[in-house]
Design a protein around this nucleic acid. Sequence first.
DNA 1: TGAATAGTGTCTGTCAGACAGTATCCC
DNA 2: GGGATACTGTCTGACAGACACTATTCA
Lengths: 239, 239
Amino acid sequence: MISEAEYLDSYDASRFPSPLVTVDSVLFTLHEQALRVLLVKRASHPQQGRWGLPGGFIDMEKDESTRATALRKLTEKTGVSPSWLEQLDTFSGAKRDPRGWSLTIAWYALISWVACAPHIASVSDAKWMPVTGLDDIDLAFDHREIIQTALQRLRQKTMYSLLPVYCLPDTFTQTQLQEATEIILGQPIQRKSLIRRFEASGMFEETGESVATGARKARLWRRKPGVDIHLFSRNLLTD
Amino acid sequence: MISEAEYLDSYDASRFPSPLVTVDSVLFTLHEQALRVLLVKRASHPQQGRWGLPGGFIDMEKDESTRATALRKLTEKTGVSPSWLEQLDTFSGAKRDPRGWSLTIAWYALISWVACAPHIASVSDAKWMPVTGLDDIDLAFDHREIIQTALQRLRQKTMYSLLPVYCLPDTFTQTQLQEATEIILGQPIQRKSLIRRFEASGMFEETGESVATGARKARLWRRKPGVDIHLFSRNLLTD
DNA sequence: TGAATAGTGTCTGTCAGACAGTATCCC
DNA sequence: GGGATACTGTCTGACAGACACTATTCA
């Protein structure tokens, strides 16, 4: 019978084989009427040259948790923190990575296009891929499946929350939120239903400003600081 | 410039430090009007002797994925496969395990009490703990937080699905489902609302049998084989 | 027949869908 | 004023909440 202190003294983690652990994120944005995903060209093996999700290994010195890893990798690529970041799922198995049994903690994230467009534009190894064009390109590992899972989650959550605001700039109009929602869901929604939810959510406040996008000026809104996302008890588009 | 084959030939996973990876499950059941969680007495260090969640390391030879790890560990402890098993979240960080930077893939699962009661009763290192009594015991690592997260998820999903059926035996009455739902949610629900959902779900069929539990006999139902869980577009108990 | 449990009928309230209507802006 | 975009009013329908009602079983 040894004590816990003695046990820990003699413990050597490297004695046990462990899976290859990575953290990958599906970062969505909206641009030119399309929902887009950030893809990164893999600089090194394995699958060098293919497009894949931004991500990488945990830095056990720097990262407080895998959320920190996901954030670190995303800010490295985009220059900013995403407005939304939530754990999606993990994907694991012996066959998904040629190096051996592997495990990825997958996250999904949202950011406005304007917030990171300049940074992305300045690098050649990253691009915003419309989700409708994913079938045509060869993605690394099981990243296609991860993106599909993220898409489902994003669409599901859009039906019972106002999640798409996290794809918009800091200030935005109700029409922009409607358009964002419609692009994500892939179909028109009732403006009236959206506005009802917008008001009931208590998430937003007027900036006092308004913008003209052709005809009548539209009021600008922002997310109230410190207010969490509101989840509704009914879904949109239930048929 | 080396080829992918050359790269893989010379790749040695053990060169890189990696976090300690475990898989833990929160297995719920219902017994004696209480929602209970399976706890296991830790046989070895660290935290030897404390109660914790059933789980352990991935067996890279045997386990096809972390789902397989969760299933393997649960069947070792209970003798049966859970009726429901779904990924919950991952928990990670440098401080949650004294051995170093660690990561656990957490799952939550449901099983009927009758299906595994005999097996659990035969071992002394496992017990079904009512979730209301968790405050009084000293749990290993961050397992209390994991259980709380699982509870929230179970309650949330109970509001928009008939998830509690997976806590019932293969055949059950509508009243049993109502009781299960009420215990999980911690408050009474409208029987009529439950029955409406029960019928609309298309998940069940009558066995033709009925049982007497006092007065009028109640019809027995079972889940239709191969039919997936139905998700409703509204929640119960929205106030 | 009465007590207890199983199961149904039906009214109300809430909120999404639908769409017509009004307001504001620029030409 | 007309056309375009922003925003509101209000009816309908689906379904949860509430609860009274009927049905079946046993003592």
